[in-house]
Design a protein around this nucleic acid. Structure first.
Length: 804
RNA sequence: GGGCGGUUAGCUCAGUUGGGAGAGCACCAGCUCGACAAGCUGGGGGUCACUGGUUCGAGCCCAGUACCGCCCACCA
């Protein structure tokens, strides 16, 4: 063993070995309690980021812990086809070759996507392995696998037959580049400098007077169907019920009253364009207004207005502004900064358009999920996210499930020439309504989250009744980021309840967002991104896991090289502690405690183990790694190993055997966080067969834990020593331990007695003050007062010892 | 605009039911001993963001303010 632990090579070797030996693999086994994690499938084209790395560290830590504890443990993985994301990646690739998808046609485009995936996709699973994630990679699934597609179709048909899937014309978000509808959750908002234009709409009967509105969307004027004002707005009270002329098209439209108009904005009068604005759409429907459109799916002006058809919106704006100036109806333009919606994939400006889409009604399907959440039959951690999950499900609007993309699951829906719709899991031979055999499958594909919603059971073979489904559904745990709760978590919960009658997992851990070191979001465009693979290359996966778990305590945590470095130091320390023991000589791995420090370290290991178990059980990873760090450095290395050193050099068989036994338990406790270095050292222990990854988790030995005498003696002596820096009041075994830890001649030997005496005087004065305060003695609980008396007594004793 | 989180040492962060302000890094001093100088021992360093309140007692509980951040949102 080299003096410097080098994770490179060691880690890759164990990753290969564990997988080759089948130790990552699991088989359905209903005789043992299960621990099942269906990991969120990454996009097939995406690179590993710190969200993944943290998620893997958290989940793998718990997975390895439960595997050691004897649970039937499986960590499942696979890929998401990620419709729009993948299509966008391939379209960019095509663009770099001067092509677009229309040049290829749909069938050829799909082939190109598959080819492209074979070449560039799926590299992320290699990166998953690099983190040490002990996933059953043999069971890797893809949401476009044939079996998975069957599950998706079963789900669709199920919902359709319950009447929960319907088609409706509504305003939706339209991406003019991808030419598809998008959900609100697929948009990003960006502030832009725009112009706010004030336009006078003359009254139809008295054109010299009118209503002035303010708009940021001049081209949509030609599709206006009303002007709306707030019913309580004195300024416009007399206008309500009259008609105004829409500029350019000179169409008479009513002035209506609606409470959704904000009197504070602009002039307090709103032009109503149901075809191109979500709020206007709502107002229009409530007032029974028509819904003309002026902008087409390509983002250009449609034929709605004479002379504008085919123009870009900018061209149309210029034409309309010219018209307004000529007619004296352009009152002013002012600069205006506001947020607009962009496609999160291609950054095109989103057009709100009315469009015929397929929807999933939420009212029925969400009720059992809400009940389950309220009853905490599934629990989000931390608690605040549980509340958020319930609230977002309560307010979930109907789900637009159709997309006009070319990459995804085609809707299992066929139309005949008469427009009858037939919905089947497999291609039907004839129209269910009229028997026509001229059937055409819908061109639409499903929202990618529609298939993601089935992940925890579709990857187990549902709707087939497989052994895996029986053994591993429902699962145990899911981990994800906050923003995914609505997109995925809640949808898995309601679809699992609907299709299998069970929630897919007991617990959802909402992990922190890993921010850049300066506290800003990690992003390529900000230049704040850090590549986790590079960090692993440089510091090792064990150190990276350690560092990520260490900073994972609050809602948003900054990435910290310091925390990674700490993990590296821990691995190196453990490595060298093992070298010390292994160089001492041959002995069995056996507890033969003969001295105070040996009884103490065994008791400390049990004590720390309990703390660790409690931390892991409550998902408090930051405390878990802190416990492990101090156990290893302070207790195991600095106190225990230093104090047995003389006996190690003397080749004391009992000391060596006990040392191995203690090290073995330390390795077991560390394995879930730092799997590679612990497995490597484990292999060097004498007579060690088998692998640490599947070694049984140690029993928290009651006799060790109960060795209160050893714990108290060492701890009190340590405190005494650390406070005073002198060996007064130490004798016997305690004195021997501290002479081993603190070499004679080091500065600490006779150090700061004077400073300590001063400190004790201050403490005594404080305690005496408290006890002299009658209100404290009367009002504070008796045990608190008693404790204070005890402290005072101890300080006086320590002071006496020092003064003597 | 709404929801959530944060503000404690130079930096990154702990602080469990209210009762002696902590860790790691950095810095300083000593140790240089046959695991590790990526080591050991010790030390200096804090108006716990601010203002009120509750309490014998507040980093912790309550109310408010300021600043930072994340997520969400149809102010045209």
């Amino acid at each position: 063993m080299e003096p410097l632990y080098e994770p490179h090579g060691v880690e890759e070797r164990w990753q290969r070995t564990w997988e080759d030996e089948g130790l990552y693999g699991a088989e359905p086994d209903t005789s043992r309690p299960r621990f099942v994690v269906a990991h969120p499938p990454p996009n097939v084209t995406g690179p590993l980021h710190f969200g993944h790395a943290l998620q893997l560290a958290l989940a793998d830590c718990l997975v390895r812990w439960h595997r050691m504890r004897g649970f039937n443990t499986v960590f499942l993985t696979g890929y998401d086809h990620a419709g729009i994301s993948t299509q966008n990646a391939v379209e960019k690739h095509l663009a770099s070759q001067g092509q677009n998808r229309h040049d290829l046609g749909r069938a050829r485009f799909e082939e190109v996507v598959w080819d492209w995936l074979r070449l560039y996709g799926r590299t992320i699973m290699t990166q998953f392995r690099r983190t040490g994630a002990s996933m059953d990679y043999r069971r890797e699934r893809f949401t476009m696998d044939d079996a998975y597609v069957r599950a998706v179709y079963r789900f669709f048909v199920h919902l359709y037959r319950k009447g929960w899937i319907y088609r409706a014309n509504r305003i939706i978000n339209w991406c003019p580049f991808h030419e598809t509808s998008l959900s609100d959750l697929e948009l990003v908002h960006e502030e832009v400098d725009d112009a706010l234009t004030y336009v006078r709409y003359p009254f139809a009967d008295v054109p010299s007077d009118g209503v002035t509105i303010a708009t940021a969307r001049v081209p949509t004027i030609v599709a206006d169907v009303a002007v709306a004002v707030h019913p309580d707005d004195e300024r416009w009270r007399d206008a309500i019920g009259r008609h105004v002329l829409v500029p350019y098209v000179e169409r008479a439209v009513p002035v209506i009253a609606d409470e959704r108009v904000d009197p504070e904005f602009g002039t307090g009068a709103l032009k109503v364009t149901p075809g191109h604005d979500p709020l206007d759409f709502e107002i229009g429907r409530d007032h029974g207004l028509p819904e003309p459109t002026a902008i087409g799916p390509d983002g250009r002006m449609s034929e709605a207005a004479d002379g504008l058809a085919g123009l870009t919106q900018d061209e149309a704006e210029t034409a309309i502004l010219d018209w307004l100036r000529e007619h004296g109806q352009l009152e002013k333009r002012e600069s205006y900064r506001h947020a607009i919606a962009l496609c999160e994939r291609c950054s095109s400006r989103i057009e709100p358009l009315i469009s015929l889409q397929w929807w999933c009604a939420m009212a029925g399907i969400k009720q059992p999920a809400l009940e389950a959440l309220r009853a905490r039959r599934v629990a989000y951690h931390p608690e605040s996210q549980h509340r958020f999950a319930i609230e977002s499900l309560e307010s979930a609007p109907d789900w637009c499930i159709s997309r006009q993309l070319w990459w995804g699951h085609r809707l299992p829906l066929w139309e005949c020439p008469d427009g009858h719709v037939t919905v089947e899991e497999t291609t039907p031979s004839a129209c269910a309504e009229c028997g026509s055999t001229e059937l055409t499958q819908s061109d639409d594909v499903l929202d990618t989250w529609f298939s993601s919603a089935l992940w925890p059971f579709a990857i187990l073979g549902w709707p087939e009744e497989t052994d895996e489904l029986r053994a591993w559904y429902p699962g145990t745990l899911n981990t994800t980021a906050r923003e995914i709760i609505r997109l995925w978590e809640n949808r898995m919960i309601f679809s699992g309840l609907e299709l299998l009658g069970e929630i897919p997992f007991e617990t959802v851990i909402i992990h922190t967002t890993v921010l850049a070191t300066d506290g800003r979001r990690m992003s390529k465009s900000l230049g704040t991104g850090i590549d986790p693979v590079e960090v692993i290359d440089e510091h090792g996966a064990d150190a990276t896991r350690y560092g990520l778990l260490k900073v994972s305590s609050t809602q948003d945590s900054r990435f910290s090289y310091g925390a990674i470095e700490e993990g590296r130091k821990l691995a190196n320390k453990l490595w060298n502690a093992s070298r010390l023991l292994l160089q001492a000589g041959e002995a069995p791995v056996e507890e033969r405690p003969k001295t105070l420090e040996e009884r103490w370290i065994l008791a400390r290991l049990s004590q720390a183990q309990r703390g660790l178990e409690s931390d892991l059980a409550s998902f408090d990873f930051a405390h878990a790694v802190d416990t492990l760090y101090h156990l290893t450095f302070d207790d195991f290395c600095d106190w225990y190993l230093e104090s047995i050193k003389p006996r190690l050099y003397a080749r004391d068989g009992d000391a060596i055997a006990t040392g191995y036994a203690a090290l073995e338990r330390l390795l077991e406790l560390l394995h879930p966080v730092m799997p590679h270095v612990t497995e490597e050292i484990w292999g060097h222990l004498p007579a060690r067969r088998g692998r640490l990854i599947v070694a049984p988790w140690p029993e928290a030995d009651e006799s060790h834990a109960a060795d209160a005498d050893a714990l108290v003696r060492v701890q009190e002596a340590a405190e005494m020593f650390r406070r005073s820096g002198v060996r007064v009041a130490l004798e016997g075994e305690e004195l021997r331990i501290f002479e081993a830890v603190v070499r004679p001649g080091s500065a600490a030997g006779d150090g700061n007695a004077a400073a300590e005496i001063e400190r004790l005087h201050k403490e005594i004065a404080r305690a005496e003050g408290m006890l002299a305060n009658e209100r404290f003695v009367q009002n504070a609980p008796a045990d608190v007062v008693e404790a204070e008396r005890g402290k005072l007594e101890r300080y006086r004793r320590e002071l006496d010892a020092l003064d003597g």
